[in-house]
């Protein structure tokens, strides 16, 4: 063993791929943000307000409106608890609700792959209608494009939405203040694990259902119960990514208590087996809220009475300003940082 020179141990300096879009750019984490900051915002964001919330807020004749858009690509199209149609409606309704807006109307654009059956398309459209009815929004306009076989994966759906923000409501990722209580509306990670389990190549069976749901009614109840300062739906990138974004937007330190976090046993078990962390798994029917300290009990109580807030729980609070970070008090009493999802969520080797 004498020939091994430890002081000479080296590590390569690999070249970072910079010229190609990779799947990780769509994962909602830091790679997505890199793409936004490096390419989209310098070209397209010059005139836009840089709040980077789930919806943009525009003012016309003194009235504030929320505007948002979201494209939906999911495989498989139908998964336990939902499908791409319900996802497309709920995604946009929720983005509007996260700035406190009452959704008014949605548009939808379909990109269809040649060869798709009418029966399947009809199932998706019916599901959209049901979700829209539940949310109380109507589809005001639509568009259809068909591409050659292989040009898309069955169906892609874009939905855009507009909503009205009532006077006195001011909800943004930049509004968290010291003392605010952090509440999640229910168990986290259900959607991501449900979709993953539906993929045939995983050989993983569970009765878990996606949480995909419109949250606008829940938000309305919360707003009438107390002062809601921040709302976000932790979709791609999971709860950790949303919390880090909020800590940066508001320039605050957030402390989360791991034992308070509601996670279904099935989700914990799946995450243990696959090497994932529930903090990074996608949700489609959950929100995280920052509530003024004195109002937190009232808001939590109101949430628990709603259809989609039954498992709501206080999970932490804002403990300081001037240092944007998210600290996690672990179940055994340790402390660590929570970071954003770096790129695509990868299963671990062993």
């Amino acid at each position: 063993m004498d020939e091994i020179d430890f002081e000479g141990w080296t590590c390569p300096v690999p070249i970072r791929p910079t010229d190609t879009v990779i799947l990780g750019h769509g994962s909602g984490g830091t790679l997505s943000r890199d793409l936004l900051n490096r390419l989209f915002l310098p070209e397209l964001g010059k005139a836009a307000p840089r709040a980077l919330d789930d919806s943009a807020v525009v003012t016309m004749d003194g009235q504030r409106y929320a505007v948002t858009t979201d494209s939906h690509v999911v495989s498989p199209l139908f998964f336990p608890g939902g499908d791409i149609g319900r996802l497309a409606i709920c995604g946009t309704v929720n983005d509007l609700a996260m700035v406190g807006a009452i959704p008014i109307a949605l548009t939808c654009g379909f990109v269809l792959e040649e060869g798709l059956s009418f029966e399947l398309l009809q199932r998706v459209v019916r599901s959209m209608e049901e979700a829209a009815r539940e949310a109380g929004v109507f589809i005001a306009a639509g568009d259809t494009k068909v591409v050659q076989r292989g040009g898309a994966d069955q169906i892609f759906i874009n939905t855009s939405g507009i909503g009205k923000i009532a006077e006195g409501i001011n909800i943004s990722g930049a509004n968290a203040k010291e003392g605010d209580v952090v509440i999640v509306s229910g168990t986290i990670g259900d959607h991501g694990i449900a979709v993953m389990s539906a993929r045939e190549d995983l050989g993983f069976e569970t009765r878990l259902e996606s949480d995909v749901a419109p949250l606008n009614h829940l938000v309305a109840e919360m707003i009438s119960a107390g002062e809601v300062r921040v709302l976000r739906d932790p979709t791609r990138g999971g709860l950790a990514t949303s919390l880090v974004e909020i800590s940066e937007q508001s320039n605050v330190t957030i402390e989360i208590m791991e034992p308070s976090l509601p996670v279904k046993p099935t989700v914990s078990a799946a995450c243990e087996m696959l090497g994932f962390d529930p903090f990074y798994v996608a949700n489609e029917g959950k929100l995280v809220a920052f509530i003024k300290e004195n109002d937190a009990d009232k808001v939590l109580e109101a949430m628990k009475k709603t259809k989609y807030g039954g498992d709501a729980a206080m999970i932490g609070r804002v403990i300081g300003t001037g240092r944007p970070q998210v600290r996690l008090k672990t179940a055994i009493g340790g402390t660590r940082l929570l970071d954003m999802l770096p790129g695509e969520m990868l299963p671990r080797i062993c």
Binding site: F6, E7, G8, W9, T10, C11, P12, V13
Partner: peptide
């Protein structure tokens, strides 16, 4: 492939 000695991973 030659690895370039710019990171202290070895240590």
């Amino acid at each position: 492939t030659q690895e370039s000695p710019l990171c202290i991973a070895g240590e």
